Simulated scan of single mutants.
Amino acid sequence: MRPVTDLSSLGWGRSDEPPCGVVLARVARIDRGRLTVLTAEGERRVVPGRALHESELGGPAVGDWVVLRGELATEILPRKSAFVRTVAGRTSAAQVVAANVDVVLVVDAMTGDARLRRVERYLAVAWSSGATPVVVLTKADLCADVAAAVAAVREDAIGVEVLPVSSVTGEGLDAVRALLGPGRTAAMVGPSGVGKSSLANALAGRTVAGTHEIREDGRGRHTTTARELHVLPGGGLLVDTPGMRELALYDDEDGIETAYADVAELAQDCRFRDCGHRGEPGCAVAAAIEDGRLDPARFTAWRKLQAEAHRQRLRVDARARAEERARLRSFHRALKDQPNRPRAERAR
């Protein structure tokens, strides 16, 4: 068996030794009940063992490190990071989009509808992943004012690098490549039609993802159908993901606070700790909106994501549900006991 240092080109950056007598592999693709994995000896197709699906990690994901015993993948190693969303539909299950990534490339296009709220949502999830988020704005060749488009996103993407690129002219591609040194892994996430496949092909220097013609509104069409890990010419690794029609948060309260650090910081200056920012006296958030320091649309988006994350937490956390019921009971008792309410109403 080759030493662990041979796996560094596949993103292995751990100091611990692999289990003796087994082979480590990185999951590059999952389809038809089998895994395509990358090992120090090359690409292989293996069968996932039952233990993988019964794992606390929720089954294998692209980017995972797994233990191979023959043609069987028997174990998922703990993840250092993961981009996770709630499975689309009426469910509370988590879906790992990409595992063990160093950078999350939040991709959107500089064409079509306004993108700020959409980028903010992706950043909230990206900050929770444990990786570093970077916003990549594609189709710079189709944008009349690239500087203005970048500035608008940069103002809201606090602490995040914003890179304009064009897969057609090559503008900005070197800046993205600089993020992906040898052994570093990036995951591209974003809605359909924003140019992720074209960007993947440009970074890879070959066709690794199919593309379609651009529509009259400047948007592309969804082409990637499965998540896949690609090894790039410079030694970096890239997880290309299908476009997401829906990005439902999964317990991302910390990520929301980071993505909306300006709003969270204002909220800490409110007079009351439990300020609901609905007109209470001494509300620092309301004051910032009134004097133009805070965009009311950004505040509304923050509140919406907070409520969404809270509902998701209640769905998956029995203790949180019990605490919420106790809070509501206490609230209703307090209403009943208000001394200024009519006696007949309190008696009901």
Rank of each mutant, 00 (worst) to 15 (best):
E54D: 14
R184Q: 11
R69D: 10
D145V: 05
R329P: 04
G89D: 10
T224F: 02
T225L: 09
R45T: 10
A152F: 07
V136S: 01
G292L: 13
G130A: 00
H332C: 08
Q338N: 14
A124C: 11
S129G: 01
L123T: 06
V168T: 15
D102S: 01
V189F: 01
C270D: 09
A40W: 10
L10V: 07
P48N: 06
K304L: 07
G11I: 15
R329T: 09
G112S: 05
V67D: 10
S92M: 02
V97F: 00
R117F: 13
G205N: 11
E155C: 05
V23T: 15
S167F: 00
D269W: 01
E265W: 00
A309I: 08
R343S: 14
D108K: 01
Y260F: 10
P48L: 06
V316P: 05
D108L: 07
D64H: 01
E228L: 10
T138W: 01
A186M: 04
W302S: 12
R184A: 04
G205W: 05
Q338A: 14
R44L: 11
T224R: 10
K139A: 02
R303P: 07
V208M: 06
H310R: 06
A322P: 00
A114D: 05
Y250V: 03
A151L: 12
A148E: 15
R206T: 11
R118E: 09
P339C: 05
S166E: 00
G11S: 09
E17S: 11
